[in-house]
Amino acid sequence: MNLTLKIWRQDNAKSKGRFQTYKVTEISPETSFLEMLDILNEGLVDKVEHPVCFDNDCREGICGMCGLYINGRPHGCDDGVTTCQLHMRKFKDGDVITIEPWRARPFPIIRDLVVDRSAFDKIIQEGGYVSVTTGGVPDGNAIPIPKKQADQAMDSASCIGCGACVASCKNASAMLFVGAKVSQLALLPQGKPEAALRVQAMVAKMDALGFGNCTNTYACEAECPKEIKRSNIARMNREFLCAKTCSEE
């Protein structure tokens, strides 16, 4: 396949970026999207040009490091995949592909397509944990957890923190990310003692970092590579309402 790529290039956080057009040729449909960019980059190095910087690591869809906004969709045109799992067989010969970085105020660009997602870590640091220290915990089977509930918690916990929810949301809202973590811990008995504190602290941090407000468009749910459901957001809203109105925290 021969393709035309329009890629956002930006030297550093402060400089002004621009789109640059590249051509790649003879790409096999079995190639993954990131391997296609590898090929482009090898060509650029051959021409003594700066390769395009993009985040990537595990290349099997679990680390959440990669994330490109491809032709108007985070992680591209396939559903339920990360960018690294997107394959070129989803494109046609001669396609023009526009590749943009995640765009959101809390995700400043570091270089080219690389953005700084440490805002997510900051939200987790506000309460995305159970406050236990190492050792001194009860036996794993001490508290039975209904299977359904454990499974639901697992579904919420499968978030990979890639940021596609924020990237796809027209408001750059992080509600699905925060909702998934709040839900996971709210569903488990281990998370209950801190539930009221947690939801308030995490939401406050999310707001302070400059993420937008949720307007329930559910683009996040549609684009989440792990198909995390919007019911997580609903559960967080419920938790938040309870925390504000019923808890002492």
Binding site: V130, G140, P144, I145, A150, A157
Partner: peptide
């Protein structure tokens, strides 16, 4: 101890219908 520690942290290990690991 690892299993106990992780359960306490809220790691959603698979469980059977009785709610046990």
């Amino acid at each position: 101890s690892i299993i106990d520690q992780c359960v306490a942290q809220g790691v959603p290990f698979a469980r059977d219908y009785g709610g046990l690991l």
